[in-house]
């Protein structure tokens, strides 16, 4: 006697599920090109870089990368040049970040109101952000040059000229001033967007309670702005800690290495000294440094202890 078992039939599934699987297949198809690209040209290089950071490798030599364990990282630990570059990068972030965020916040507060010309103001403030870092560095290269704008203005007021980019003590400050100027507009626009999310009736309530302008700022504006402020600070940290182009154009890391940021050191190590392994190790230390700094910024932003 033949037992008729219900054959597991693929087509027997409910119509709804079949519909969903058709969509899923299409979804997969749409995602494949982007996934392949990111896997090959983003994730692949990260893994490759990690391997390189444990290897000794010069593209000029015929042999491939030689595995040397933790030697690259150990080498960095005692390397005064790398320690100095880390310190310079940290100083760079710390001296650009506060002024640019505070001034941008002030400007956002001042322009957070409709009046004639406010659109023009916002557009103008944003121009330094749109122009490439290379181009604005060129302009500032001239501004800081011997007969540049800064010296001309100083001479006008009867003060003596200086070589801004040629002194060990001043070059990093000169680059920092330029970055403050460049970051101002985009930070301001972001903070302005943040200000517009603060509920208007909270101000009304604070006013009824007799809060003055400063108290309103402390009790209403700042807490409401917190998420955007955190975002702005974290983004600024990420970009500033990778400072390279402006250094390349303005100072080439000099004078005497006083503006050699980690990213600049990585560039010279890899592409002038052909030491790909050590440069990769530096890149991962920088990665950890940036991740650490931004996590601290985000935790502080959320009102937790770092």
């Amino acid at each position: 006697m033949a037992v008729i078992k219900p054959r597991p039939n693929r087509r027997g599934r409910p119509a709804r599920q079949r519909l969903h699987s058709r969509q899923a297949r299409f979804g997969l198809l749409f995602v494949v090109p982007a996934t392949l690209y990111v896997a090959i040209f983003q994730l692949g290089p990260v893994l490759y870089g990690l391997v390189l950071s444990f290897s000794q490798y010069s593209p000029l030599s015929r042999s491939g990368p030689q595995f040397i364990g933790l030697d690259n990282y150990r080498g960095l630990y005692g390397d005064p040049e790398f320690a100095r570059a880390m310190a310079i990068t940290g100083r760079y972030v710390l001296q650009v970040l506060p002024p640019t965020v505070v001034i941008a916040l002030g400007l956002a507060l001042l322009s957070n109101r409709a009046f004639r010309g406010v659109g023009l103001f916002r557009t103008a403030m944003y121009v330094p952000h749109v122009i490439s870092l290379t181009a604005v560095s060129m302009i500032w290269l001239w501004i800081y040059s011997d007969q540049g704008l800064v010296n001309e203005v100083l001479a006008f007021f009867g003060m003596s000229e200086q070589r801004w980019l040629a002194t060990e003590s001043g070059a990093l400050n000169a680059a920092s001033a330029m970055r403050v100027w460049k970051a101002l507009g985009s930070n301001m626009v972001l903070l302005l967007a943040g200000l517009q999310t603060v509920p208007k009736d909270l101000y009304e309530a604070a006013r009824v309670d007799g809060a003055n302008a400063w108290q309103q700022f402390r009790a209403v504006t700042l807490p409401g702005l917190r998420p955007m402020l955190t975002y702005v600070v974290a983004m600024d940290i990420i970009y500033l800690a990778q400072g390279f182009t402006e250094i390349f154009v303005l100072t080439q890391g000099g004078p005497y290495g006083s503006t050699t940021t980690v990213n600049y050191l990585i560039y010279t190590e890899a592409f002038q000294y052909n030491d790909m392994g050590s440069a990769s190790a530096m890149a991962f230390v920088l990665f950890a440094f940036i991740a650490g700094l931004s996590i601290i910024a985000i935790r502080v932003g959320q009102g937790r202890r770092p």
Binding site: P45, Q242, N263, I266, Y267, A283, F287
Partner: peptide
């Protein structure tokens, strides 16, 4: 991911 992490591998690729 910072640019400098993928820069060297991408160059070699």
């Amino acid at each position: 991911i910072p640019v400098s992490v993928t820069l060297i591998p991408l160059f070699l690729m």
